[in-house]
């Protein structure tokens, strides 16, 4: 299988007048097509910074990032826009939906940018909406639906342009356990059937247990890695839980 994401010697240093803070130190990471990778770490470990680098909205201090065969460091501003549009999908903790557009309109926003034909758009929206079980609310506005539905709308929007890599930043952070389970099941489903590659940052062991592989980072460095293999989700959850005390920090706060 082809490599979707590869980093080499990735470093990110924040400098202020008083201090230098090394957010990421020598991160080496490879994600292959069709993988569902979780990144876990305590607060301040650098996991969100890492996601921002992949999302091309922040730049590393040094090192290389290659996504879907493109060295994203070599892209200029406009090429980056186009790259984000074609290769990346995003899900955020706080949804980032436009309140003035309906669920349907929010979802097809990326297609509008691609100037797709209306009929194709309609078909894509219906397809993806059924995947995430939100056909019935397509004509509602974001303020009329629940948090779980909002996040599934956001996920549909992230998926609709068929990106090479789906980046999710704490997607279950604001959801109750039922909504979180629904969302994670949907993500697992698109990952398995459509072979969508997903990279998810989380500090929720339950969310992480849906991944095929979980990478733990601590103080900006890769700490360890767990592979689910043939284990059941429950077993994998237990394995993740076992790592957490070693990892330290306040990661188990949310359990």
């Amino acid at each position: 299988m082809r490599t979707i994401l590869q980093t080499k010697n990735l470093k990110k240093v924040y400098r202020t007048k008083e201090s230098i803070f090394q957010a990421l130190d020598n991160i080496e990471l490879t994600v292959r097509e069709g993988e569902f990778v979780g990144i876990m770490g305590p607060s301040g470990s650098g996991k969100t910074t890492l996601l921002h680098l992949f999302a091309t909205i922040d730049e590393p201090t040094s090192g290389e990032i290659e996504i879907a065969g493109t060295d994203i460091m070599q892209l200029n501003e406009d090429q980056r826009s186009s790259f984000r549009r074609k290769q990346l999908g995003f899900i955020f903790q706080d949804y980032n939906l436009l309140d003035t557009l309906t669920v349907k309109e929010n979802i097809l926003l990326p297609l509008v940018l691609e100037k797709m034909k209306v009929a194709e758009m309609e078909q894509s929206v219906n397809e993806i909406a059924s995947r995430f079980g939100i056909q019935s609310i397509l004509d509602k506005y974001p303020y009329q639906i629940s948090g779980g539905q909002k996040q599934r709308t956001a996920a549909s929007r992230a998926m609709i342009a068929r990106p090479s890599l789906l980046l999710a930043d704490e997607p279950t952070g604001a959801l109750d356990s039922k909504s979180a389970t629904d969302l994670l099941e949907s993500l697992k489903n698109v990952n398995e059937t459509d072979k969508v590659t997903i990279l998810m940052v989380t500090h929720d062991a339950f969310a992480a247990s849906y991944c095929k592989r979980v990478i733990f980072i601590k103080d900006g460095k890769t700490f360890t890695e767990l592979v689910r293999g043939n284990h059941s989700r429950k077993d994998f959850f237990q394995k993740v839980i076992n790592v957490l005390p070693v990892l330290g920090g306040n990661i188990d706060d949310t359990l």
Partner: peptide, 15 residues
């Protein structure tokens, strides 16, 4: 700001 940021993130060029 939020709306504009989202457009940028979804890949519309700054220009």
């Amino acid at each position: 700001k939020k709306e504009v940021g989202l457009y940028a993130l979804l890949g519309i060029r700054k220009k």
